[in-house]
Nucleic acid binder design. Structure first.
Lengths: 244, 244
DNA sequence: ACCAATTTGTCCGTATGTATG
DNA sequence: TCATACATACGGACAAATTGG
């Protein structure tokens, strides 16, 4: 009752949170640059005025965020790579009960952009990797698991060739969920050949630098995927998690 | 010397990592369902065979990941919301020195899809929110900061109307970096009116359910943004962080 | 509204393994 | 090879906040 409300809420967040915040700030602000070693736990604990146990709790959060990475014993400031974020994003989507329809619509836009950009920027090495991918799929056309993983690899190679990190970041969590859906479709419909033909056509158009056509073919390729999904009797509006 | 090498590498990852992994598994696998309270720290520590301090380090990682949230004192299993991931993804992109070109290309594809989907699914309430947004921008057309934040809001409203969580997840980190770039352009070029007009046109086409035209107008709108960026003398291939 | 038990937040001390000079 | 520094992990302790009776 009589307590002064002024002092009531001095401690807003637990100490370990403030530690994570402070260290993250230190890095984002550039006081600690990527590549540098983090100070020892004792030093940091002393500097921030907390116990080492508390400091370590905070460090675990920062570490998990990817701002620091373990390099041997010490922690080193790192550039968080967005691939680390992709799996977490995918998990968020499945827990949110995202539907195949949502994934398909988004994949449609991103893979089309990917293909168009790849036409402009692809180089010889990437092309030969794609050729190798196609050859391998042709050789293993009966092996469904192999075809699915080669399909994923094909689109990943294309994304790399597109040379756009914003796009890579955006498409990764979606493709992580979308393409494995092939595992559901293929065993029932055996449309491996259609996939292979589409890939062949796409790489052919890329070699011709035909960005118009490559876009429409990529859309056709993904429309196939949608038809396959529906043909298995699965509901596009149903969450994926059950299916996968 | 005589030690059996069989036992040499039993411990691959530190215990706190395994804790984070185990607890994350527990949740992803559905043994702990969203909304449930996490067991107490002592229980978990006993169950996983680690000390409570170690367990807490692991918990901090899981907590930071968004799989559990604080509810009063205890931790409660939660569905990680992808908006939490967006800021981290944005940070990753800026630290990776992503260029305006990369952002623009990606935004182009995603905002176009957003607009097209919005046409199909928008409802009366969302339309009136967009109308209000436009009216407010018209009333504050001189206030640059206001215009920028209303521009962001306009596109966010559209994204919500598109009703696609995969798209929301993908576009958020990009839009978080892309649209604030207006803060650079507008003070120098004063093209607020063009933004307002584009928004008016887009909402008009949405009301007409004209998905063809709305796509081209959205592209035009973003092409304007690109021209503005170039007109300020900024290099599209330069990282954003300096500019923002 | 009060009391007691539970649980978290924080700290301290210590032992162990390992990498580095 | 040896010694040191450091991270990892454990055990125990206590205050504060929360919960349940």
């Amino acid at each position: 009752m009589l307590e002064a409300p002024v002092f009531s809420k001095l401690t807003l967040a637990p100490a370990y949170r403030q530690v994570a915040e402070s260290v993250g700030q230190l890095i984002s602000s550039g006081k600690l640059r990527p590549g540098e070693l983090l100070p020892t736990e004792m030093e940091l604990a002393l500097h921030l005025g907390v116990n080492r146990s508390t400091l370590r709790e905070g460090l675990r959060a920062v570490e998990h965020e990817g701002l620091v990475r373990r390099d041997g014993k010490r922690l080193r400031v790192a550039i968080p790579h967005y691939t680390d974020l992709a799996t977490r994003a995918s998990r968020a989507l499945t827990m949110q009960q995202v539907t195949f329809r949502e994934l398909w619509e988004t994949a449609m836009a991103m893979e089309t952009l990917t293909a168009v950009l790849a036409v402009e920027r692809i180089n010889g090495e990437a092309i030969s990797q794609l050729d190798a991918n196609i050859a391998e799929m042709a050789a293993n056309i009966k092996d469904i698991d192999r075809v699915v993983s080669l399909d994923i690899e094909f689109h990943d190679l294309l994304a790399e060739a597109a040379n756009n990190r914003a796009l890579s970041l955006a498409r990764e969590p979606i493709s992580l969920l979308f393409f494995p859906a092939g595992k559901i479709i293929l065993p029932r419909l055996k449309t491996q050949k259609r996939i292979l033909d589409a890939h062949k056509k796409i790489i052919e158009l890329i070699k011709q630098r035909n960005s118009q056509e490559v876009g429409t073919w990529m859309r056709r390729h993904l429309a196939d995927m949608k038809r396959g999904y529906q043909a298995t009797g699965l509901d596009m509006e149903q969450p994926l998690d059950g299916a996968l």
